[in-house]
Design a protein around this nucleic acid. Structure first.
Lengths: 202, 202
DNA sequence: CCCATCCGCATACGCTCCGTATGCCAATTG
DNA sequence: CAATTGGCATACGGAGCGTATGCGGATGGG
């Protein structure tokens, strides 16, 4: 019945993160009572303060978990693309698709920035943007993308457009149709990064 | 000494908005105590509840004020551009410049969305995006911008990129240099909207 | 000019939530 | 088996918020 202590500890951490993620993703960070969601995990605030310091610390843990999931999925999808440019485009569109989840929008796009500040400065949640920037750098080296751009900067701008894209689709009353429009506009913007006459050399 | 009642009322409304704007823009919405910032305007929460219903209502009023200011400035600058495309680009870069203010970033990009939801659905704060969408529509009609795009959608995506651009510049430790890089990348993205762009792939 | 009404705003109260200090018990260690 | 560590719960004080209530001065009709 009594499992080793390390496992118990890891389990309560996981329970807290899961409960918090559910609460933050539905009613939102500000409305989520620590007493309530710790109780929903059969724990108390005592455990929360012990493991995460405070409510913000717990939010950071939730965000790190989500970011890792998103990065894993993005990398998996991108690895199946035929060309490097296509791979980059696929990364972006997969990102947009994932970000349709209300939980993602709420935690990563709304409450996260409000509580923790500029996402660009989150220490443990930049996997997605990082890999996009890497791909952009390679594409520049290959002459597909215009030279002179800072890859990280470009990736951030695109990330901003992506999150808007997701929000627009998610809040539409006809998501199917809106999705087509939004993704088309998004891809059009990406075209601006391509070298003229030099794109699609593959 | 006793001025008409209407003026007094307008004055307390203005005082509350100004005090809230200062508090929200510096310490942030969540940390701003209603007791504190109403007191700083020599008022109490009673006045706040009477005029704005609650803290969120006051935030809406603050946001409406800021949005109006930004739209006015954007329109003023844009009206001096030689060509329509340049006018559009100027709108965007002016927007980015204004958004460098910490107050704007905090209220419009961070706390606002967290408290009031997707900015695209704010009823009284879409003047900037609206005028950008209008200009895009005109540019499409003139054949400068690729056809088939929904102007409002494109404007939203660009807006997302713009806000990231501002945040990146504002949080840089060398804003001058960063600004050049970011604006260059931003303009490059806008190029994607222009017709006669080679390398279209979809 | 006076009085009744209205309403803008302040005050008072109870509640919820949060952070810290403290305590308890199970698991580890020698 | 005793000692100790530390994971987690409990207890307490304070701050902030929303609502109900009260006050005083401006307003408008007689």
């Amino acid at each position: 019945m009594h499992r080793p202590r390390k496992e118990m500890i890891a389990e309560t951490r996981a329970k807290l993160i899961a409960a918090a993620r559910r609460a933050f993703g539905t009613i939102g960070y500000a409305e989520a009572s620590m007493d309530d969601f710790t109780a929903s995990a059969r724990l108390t605030r005592g455990a929360l303060y012990h493991h995460f310091g405070d409510k913000k610390g717990l939010l950071e843990a939730v965000i790190a978990e989500i970011d890792a999931e998103m990065a894993a999925r993005v990398n998996e999808v991108a690895s199946r693309a035929p060309t490097r440019w296509q791979r980059f485009v696929d990364e972006c569109t997969t990102y947009i698709e994932m970000a349709l989840e209300p939980e993602i929008q709420r935690i990563m796009f709304r409450d996260g920035p409000a509580v923790l500040g500029d996402p660009a400065q989150w220490s443990n949640a930049n996997a997605c943007v990082g890999s996009m920037a890497d791909h952009l750098a390679v594409l520049q080296g290959e002459g597909v993308v215009v030279p002179g751009l800072d890859p990280e900067t470009a990736a951030r701008l695109i990330n901003g457009a992506s999150s808007q894209a997701s929000q627009r689709i998610a809040n539409s009353n006809d998501p199917e149709a809106t999705s087509k429009m939004v993704v088309a506009a998004f891809k059009q913007l990406l075209e601006g990064l391509l070298k003229k006459n030099g794109g699609r050399t593959d």
